[in-house]
Every structure is written in structure tokens, then in C-alpha cells.
Design a protein around this nucleic acid. Structure first.
Lengths: 168, 168
DNA sequence: TCAAAATTTCACTAATTTTTGAAATTTCAG
DNA sequence: CTGAAATTTCAAAAATTAGTGAAATTTTGA
């Protein structure tokens, strides 16, 4: 396969993949483009390569930076800002885990905590089923939370980090 | 908090939560409703409780069944079909992992496998970066694949299954 | 300080996804 | 069999989400 075609395929599919994960298609495509670019790109490069508007590039780049997946790069002598993606996939993964945990899991756990104690007759089957379901989801969530914390810590920890490199 | 209010909160938030995970809001809400219902419900029950149309209930229930999260229940003497959700959260989680792996991860790995060998000068930096990125994502994906297989197996395996129960 | 270049914002438009509801089909008790 | 009840389908409508592009703002080199 030719490089050009392979690149297109990668970008298109990474976009579709991302959209299953709550990331919008264009954001994932910009991310894909930056992942396979050896050098940083500026907004115009991205506009041209993906054929999207300036505003669109700007907004999605900003989101990618908020997610911690892309960095602004200052190139001496250049007026424009350049952007480059974190290339270490393990870092990318832990970064995504960290953000989603913060944005989704943590708030959900806080809610479940509140919902677990409803008023009323504990032997009523509706109350019983409700507290049982909420309780078991909450316990499951707390486990997951711990596990993910461990995963993120592993990346930040030098020794474990090096151990993990074996799997990359 | 009163049961009614807690139930509404749970359903609404489970719906929002689901929508971050590629599951549509209504499907997640139906799932939530069934999770907290002590007895199976029929399509009319769901229509009324969530205030949505018959067609919508029907389609989303069918999807939930495809995902293996909900079962059809035949109640003797009843003409209508009833539905009930798998209540064991660990089973729910492994079921979701299994399905998403099949629908998303596996096809992505197959694609990356094809993309890894592009034609051309291996010392060109664009080719270099492309194969490096694709290769590292692929290796990462293979690891994840193995890990998730292990997770699903653990549920299906009696001994590990029991071990895992300690975490529920 | 000035003005050209670069970046950001945002009202509007486009595209996509979800929901409805009525018609078509299937099921089943009598 | 028959026909009423239940389920399924699907074209159209509604709702949601994403993208555009021009105007507003900010930055920077001279």
C-alpha cells in the first residue's frame, strides 16, 4: 500500500473509532493526523490536509489540548503556532483514562453515593431492588476507580513505568 | 430522598452516562429502568414510565437484547412479552467489554495490521513516523485485547469467578 | 504605537442521529 | 381459520450535534 492511501485510511478509521468513544469525528481525525506527522503542524496545514474550516480546526485543537493529547509548539522565527501530538501511546491511554475518570466516573460515584439511602420500608421490593442495584454499581465503580488510579500511577511512577515499557 | 425521585435521578443520569459510551440515551434509560425493576416489564410499562413511543421502545429493547444485557421473559398466562435486565453488574460489564471488543477493537486491529507495511523508502521520515505510530498502537491494542480476554474468561471461569465475587 | 498576521468567537447552516406514529406483519386464543 | 392483540418496520419529523466563515479580538514585528 502507498503511504498516501495508508495515511488516509488511518485518519478516516481513527475518526470513526473515536466517535464510539465520545470523541467527535473531527477531533479524532486531527489527533490521527498529528500522530503520524513527524513534524508539528499549524492550523493552516490541518485545514488543508483534512479539508475543514479554520474555526473547526481551532475549536478541536483547543479541546485536544484540554484533553492533554496535543501540545502547542513555538518554533523560533515562525509567527504561527504549531501543534504536535503526544506520540507515546501508553501516555495517550493513561491521559484519556485520567480525564474520563475525572469527567464521568467520579461524578457518577458521587451521585450513586447520594442515591443509595432512600427513605421508606426496607422490605418493599422496589426499594430493595433499587438499593441493591445502586449499591452494587457503586461498589463496582469504586473498584474500577482504584484500578484506574493504579494504572495512571504506574505511568507516573518511574520503576513501574519502566516495567510497563516491556509491554509497549 | 424519596424512592420516586431517586429512581428518576438514576435513570436520567444513567442515560447521560451511557451517551458518553456510544450507547444512545434512551437505550441506557431503558436499561436503567429494568435494572431497578424487581419484576419484568412489558413494552407498555416502559412507554409509560419513560414517556417514549412504542417504536422507540421496541427498537431499543431489541438492541439491548443484541448486546446481551436484557432477556425476553415469557410469563405463563400473559399474552405480552416481558423484559428483564441482567442484574449482576460484573456480568453486565464483561458482556459490554466482550461486545465492544468484537465490534471495535478487533476490526481496528485488523486494519492496523494491513497498514503497518507501507511501500517506500524506510528512511523517509513520514514513512518512519507512520509505521512507528501504527505499530505502537497495534502493539498496545494487542495487549489490551489479551487483557480484556482475560477479564471475560475470568467471569466465565468458575474458580476465578468466585474469586472475583470478593470484589463485588 | 500601528497595522498586518494570527487566533478566537459565535450566529447561522448543514449533517447526523433519534423519535414518532401509523401501517404492515406476526401471533395466538377461541 | 378468524380477527383482535401484540410486535415490528420504516418514512417522515424533530432534536441534537457538528461545521462554516466572517467579524471581533489578540498578538507581534517593525
Amino acid at each position: 500500500m502507498q503511504l498516501e492511501e495508508a495515511q488516509q485510511q488511518f485518519i478516516a478509521n481513527w475518526g470513526a473509532f473515536g466517535s464510539h468513544w465520545g470523541i467527535n469525528r473531527t477531533m479524532a481525525q486531527i489527533h490521527a493526523l498529528l500522530l503520524i506527522s513527524p513534524d508539528p503542524l499549524n492550523q493552516d496545514d490541518i485545514m488543508v490536509k483534512l479539508n475543514i474550516s479554520r474555526g473547526n480546526v481551532n475549536m478541536n485543537i483547543r479541546d485536544l489540548i484540554d484533553w492533554g493529547l496535543v501540545n502547542r509548539i513555538l518554533i523560533p522565527g515562525e509567527r504561527k503556532e504549531f501543534f504536535s501530538a503526544e506520540k507515546d501511546i501508553w501516555k495517550v491511554a493513561t491521559q484519556i483514562v485520567k480525564e474520563r475518570k475525572k469527567r464521568e466516573l467520579d461524578p457518577m460515584l458521587r451521585l450513586l453515593d447520594q442515591l443509595e439511602d432512600v427513605e421508606g420500608d426496607k422490605s418493599d421490593k422496589h426499594i430493595k431492588q433499587f438499593t441493591e442495584t445502586v449499591g452494587s454499581i457503586r461498589r463496582f465503580g469504586l473498584q474500577a476507580d482504584k484500578m484506574l488510579d493504579g494504572l495512571v500511577k504506574a505511568e507516573e511512577n518511574w520503576f513501574l513505568g519502566n516495567l510497563m515499557k516491556m509491554f509497549r
